[in-house]
Design a protein around this nucleic acid. Structure first.
Lengths: 230, 230
DNA sequence: AATTAACTATGATATAAATCATACTAGTAA
DNA sequence: TTACTAGTATGATTTATATCATAGTTAATT
């Protein structure tokens, strides 16, 4: 971790977007730009809450470990996304770990100032409430998927999420830099099974993968896999 | 469903607890007491949002269906608990179903009035934000459990949750009226597997079950099952 | 450039848990 | 009271998925 002098643009994150122009200078005085190298841990499960972070550059994975070996990736965070926000609940211990997947720049806002912003700005609190409401809905959908969907459906779900989160270039390639390991950890399965399922989907003509690139050829059929049983 | 004349006590729910005394008469004028019979559906997945409900009496299960046969129970709601709140997200379609597990009395507050309450009461919005933050943390923990924990751990988790949610009487019996089917649907497994796992736990002396009653003999050991792999 | 470490690729095997099959029991409706 | 439905109980069988094993390939580090 390294403090970084280059400031953010005060416009991409939830805090800035929902603050009045007059509040921005105060945010400017209370934020801290931080840089993390690839694979560096930003904060880890069980540690004390210090504040919230907004991703300014790079990709972060939010994950929960389980008995040394296994992990589940809850989500990937990119520019504008808020992380560490799970801390605002009743217990002040972070329930998750955040790790940089590439070189990452974050804007950190300490909890006291964030709470002050919430107090002085009703619409920020409202926006945050809505944000949580959506995150909860998303989490519960994923809960059901992980519990009841078979691996193929979860892999399809993962691929669609990746395309949505990372976008595709002109040729349809999903531009990202994730390992299969990480994709598998998001889908809630092992690397091997994830790999085999990708092969299966390729054989069925739903995806195309050459080397590093991944192209969804038939997002519609993938979506169907996430709606019905085999 | 039946409207019910007997009003609630204006004190048990999140809305009432976070409103000023002066606001209560307005709540009184804008709430509606509703009764549902056992097994009646209160609202169902895919339907339009109308408002939020507060449980006043009885037990409600919040669940998501999956391909006709399977379902996952997300949570059980009891007195004071808010349901239908997932509607406050971006899309106005309910992502879940709520079903009465016994005879249930609810207090219903239509969305426009609820939104008005949020607007006129900053600390209510803040409380709701915190509520969501906690719910999200809980949901994400459960997400990991469902994805990575084995059935035995999930069953143990379920039993501990039940004891916490429904309490135990003097003899240690968990006072509830759930079917094994429902417990299994919460643990994210089938009825048969749930049943077998209960037997296993009984053999190991961690629980005791006679007929309808269920007693946790060793909550500590059960908790350990939820923390480590076999 | 060489050496290690991390990631990718596949086949073989094991196993946890779902599914199927069949009774039994208790509560509800006719 | 009988018939019927929903829930409970258990054994046998199947299947999806994890685990193990082994090797090739790329990327990082000295």
């Amino acid at each position: 971790m390294k403090t970084n002098k280059t400031p953010c643009d005060l416009s991409s994150c939830l805090l800035c977007r929902n603050s009045l122009a007059g509040w921005l200078p105060l945010i400017d005085g209370n934020r801290q730009m931080l840089s993390f190298k690839k694979k560096e841990v930003i904060f880890s499960e069980g540690s004390q809450v210090a504040g919230v972070y907004f991703v300014y550059e790079g990709t972060v994975k939010i994950h929960k470990a389980w008995s040394q070996q296994k992990e589940l990736i809850l989500k990937f965070a990119r520019k504008g996304d808020m992380i560490g926000y799970r801390a605002l609940g009743n217990d002040q211990i972070l329930p998750i770990t955040a790790t940089a997947l590439d070189d990452v720049t974050l804007c950190f806002v300490a909890l006291p100032f964030f709470e002050l912003s919430l107090q002085s700005n009703h619409s920020l609190t409202y926006a945050l409430m809505r944000f949580y409401a959506n995150a909860l809905q998303e989490a519960e959908k994923r809960m059901r998927n992980l519990a009841l969907m078979d691996v193929k459906g979860r892999v399809a779900e993962t691929l669609l999420m990746l395309q949505h989160k990372f976008g595709a270039d002109e040729t349809g390639q999903i531009v990202m830099n994730l390992t299969r390991q990480d994709m598998a950890a998001y889908a809630g399965t092992t690397y091997e099974t994830f790999f085999r399922t990708l092969n299966e989907l390729r054989t069925e003509g739903l995806i195309q993968q050459t080397d590093k690139s991944l192209i969804l050829l038939d997002a519609g059929k993938l979506a169907i896999l996430t709606h019905t049983d085999p």
